[in-house]
C-alpha cells in the first residue's frame, strides 16, 4: 500500500558533510557499480560510448559556488541521492503500490515488478532523486543499499551503503537518525545538520552538514612570506654580464 507508515521503528539514512566532500565522484561510481549488479535489473545506460551518452544514476554530485557578503567565494561539492523522507511525496502518488516506505527502517523502495513506468513519483520528488531506467521501463532510486546493510555474507565493515564505504574523504555517514544517541544523530546535533527544501514539507531523513567557515587571507601577515621574496632582483654572474652587455648594444 502506498500509505505512508504512521511510525517507523528506525529511520536509517545518510549524513553528508559538505565541509569535507572533495567532489571526487567516487560515491557516484561505487553506487552505480554496486546497484547495477545487485538489483533485479541493471542500471542501464543509453548510448554510453556514443555522441550523447545518458544513464541511470542513483547518486549525483553537483558543485556550487557560494559568495558571502564579504570575502572570497567558496566551492561546495554537493552529493545528492534519495533523502528517504518521512513524508515522502513519491510514495503517496504511486498508483500501483510499487513505491513504498518500510515501517521497520524507514527506507523508501520501489518494487520493480509492480512499476508501470508512469513517472509520476519522479515528478513528485522535489530533489530529483528518482530516475527512469529507459531500458527496463521502471523507476530506479537509492535503496540505501538494503542488500548490503543487512547482508550477513559480507564482512562487518562492508555492511553499509556502497557510497559511504567508498568515500575517501569520510564525508558520508550512515546510521539510524531516529535514535538521538546514534553516532549520526550526535554528528547532526554537533554540526547543525540541515534539511534540504524544508518548505516542501517532506521531512527528509538525510541531513547535510554545512561547510565550516574558511580562513581568509585579508589582513593576515604570513610569517614565512618575507623569506619567499625573490632574493636577487638584478641578475648577477654570467647572466648579469649578458644582461648588461645586451643592454649596452
Amino acid at each position: 500500500m502506498t500509505d505512508l507508515p504512521s511510525h517507523t521503528e528506525r529511520q536509517l539514512g545518510l549524513v553528508i558533510d559538505l565541509d569535507t566532500c572533495v567532489g571526487c565522484h567516487a560515491c557516484v561510481v561505487a553506487c552505480k557499480g554496486w546497484n547495477t549488479q545487485s538489483q533485479p535489473s541493471p542500471l542501464s545506460d543509453q548510448d554510453p560510448r556514443g555522441a550523447a551518452p545518458s544513464g541511470t544514476f542513483l547518486n549525483r554530485v553537483h558543485a556550487y559556488e557560494v559568495t558571502p557578503q564579504t570575502g572570497a567565494a567558496q566551492v561546495v561539492h554537493f552529493p545528492k541521492s534519495c533523502l528517504h523522507c518521512a513524508d515522502a511525496p513519491c510514495v503517496t502518488v504511486c498508483p500501483t503500490g510499487a513505491s513504498f516506505k518500510r515501517a521497520e527502517d524507514g527506507i523508501v523502495l520501489v518494487n520493480e515488478s509492480e512499476c508501470i513506468g508512469c513517472g509520476l513519483c519522479a515528478w513528485a520528488c522535489p530533489y530529483g532523486a528518482r530516475e527512469m531506467d529507459m531500458a527496463e521501463g521502471v523507476m530506479k532510486k537509492c535503496t540505501l543499499c538494503v542488500d548490503r546493510i543487512y547482508n550477513e555474507t559480507l564482512p562487518e565493515q562492508d555492511r553499509e551503503p556502497a557510497c559511504v564505504r567508498t568515500c575517501p574523504a569520510g564525508a558520508r555517514h550512515f546510521g539510524d537518525l531516529s535514535d538521538p544517541e546514534s553516532a549520526v544523530s550526535l554528528l547532526v546535533e554537533a554540526r547543525g545538520g540541515m534539511d534540504l527544501m524544508p518548505e516542501q514539507g517532506t521531512r527528509p531523513a538525510n541531513k547535510y552538514l554545512p561547510p565550516r567557515p574558511r580562513d581568509s587571507w585579508e589582513g593576515e601577515v604570513d610569517l614565512l612570506a618575507p623569506w619567499l621574496e625573490p632574493v636577487a632582483e638584478e641578475p648577477r654572474g654570467l647572466l648579469g654580464w649578458i644582461d648588461r652587455t645586451l643592454a649596452r648594444l
Binding site: H25, H62, A63, Y64, E65, P68, K80, P126, L196
Partner: peptide, 16 residues
C-alpha cells in the same frame, strides 16, 4: 534546496 543560503548566495557552478 542546498541549505547554503546562510553562508552566502549560492550559484550552480558545474553540473554532475
Amino acid at each position: 534546496a542546498t541549505g547554503l543560503g546562510t553562508e552566502g548566495s549560492p550559484r550552480a557552478l558545474f553540473p554532475p
